[in-house]
């Protein structure tokens, strides 16, 4: 068994994409929550004096990169955790008994999950334009794509690692409420981190999404808390760590 089997990775990617495209309701469902957040927060807080907001930046401009990050966080984590639903319907065994390495399986899941999460995030970005969002420059969009990809890889890997720790999908809701939502609130997606109390701010600094949102803000809005290089470096680092952790933990999952 080769460590990486390209055809196997492609098979897994293609399955995820086929399933995603086949269920329009799932696409709508996946972007409904971030879109509602975006619309209501943007209108509700428009013109409000939000502490720490950069000079001359409208709240909508500030919020859109945050909500794109939110979409990526949920889309990618759920994609990683979908190993659990495969296990529940028995399909995981079909994958595990095939002559491909566990690394290939994790890479396939990351490829598929990143693609679907990316589509969701781009939809949110497009839908934010009629709401009044204006990217600072079109040239920055490719760089935004790099950030989105790194966020995706980080959190699919994270989802795979989490899924490896559960034997069924019962822990799923706990994970969403006690892990994924806190990651969202601690990322500076809807308010600047500087408004958080000191110790909590420290937690936010450990959150990869913080750098993802900050990086997106830098390239899409032209304002950021940290230098672009720091954001990019932190995300690259978290991607490598999460993929390694996901692969390592998934290798140890007993198949039956």
């Amino acid at each position: 068994m080769n460590l990486v089997d390209p055809l196997g990775v492609y098979a897994l990617w293609r399955r995820d994409v086929t399933r995603f495209l086949r269920a329009p309701s799932r696409i709508i469902g996946s972007i409904a929550m971030p879109l509602l957040f975006l619309v209501f927060l943007a209108f509700g807080f428009s013109g409000a004096a939000i502490p720490g907001l950069p000079e001359g930046v409208d709240y909508l401009q500030f919020l859109v990169p945050g909500m794109i990050g939110f979409t990526m966080l949920f889309g990618a984590s759920f994609a990683g955790l979908s190993i659990l639903s495969d296990q529940e319907v028995g399909f995981l065994k079909e994958i595990l008994v095939a002559p491909i390495s566990r690394t290939s399986i994790v890479l396939g899941r990351i490829a598929g999950g990143s693609t679907t999460a990316l589509v969701q995030a781009i939809l949110i970005l497009l839908l934010s334009i009629p709401l009044g969002f204006r990217p600072v420059s079109l040239l920055s969009l490719p760089l935004a794509l790099v950030f989105l990809l790194l966020i995706a890889v980080t959190f699919v890997g994270f989802g795979v690692a989490l899924a490896s720790q559960f034997s069924d999908s019962e822990g799923f809701n706990l994970v969403v409420q006690f892990v994924i939502f806190p990651l969202f609130f601690l990322s500076g997606a809807i308010y600047p981190i500087s408004s958080l109390p000191g110790p909590v701010q420290f937690l936010a600094l450990l959150n990869p999404l913080t750098y993802g949102v900050d990086g997106l803000r830098a390239v899409l809005v032209g304002t950021s808390t940290y230098p672009l290089v720091v954001d990019l470096g932190a995300l690259l680092f978290s991607s490598v760590v999460m993929v390694a952790a996901g692969t390592y933990l998934f290798e140890r999952v007993e198949a039956v």
């Binding site: 055809l7 196997g8 319907v89 399909f91 095939a98």
Partner: peptide, 18 residues
């Protein structure tokens, strides 16, 4: 151990690639 959202042929194609 089938993916119920894929068609019969797609399930087989998935397997063949693996």
């Amino acid at each position: 151990a089938l993916d119920e959202e894929l068609t019969g042929a797609e399930n087989l194609a998935f397997h063949a690639r693996l």
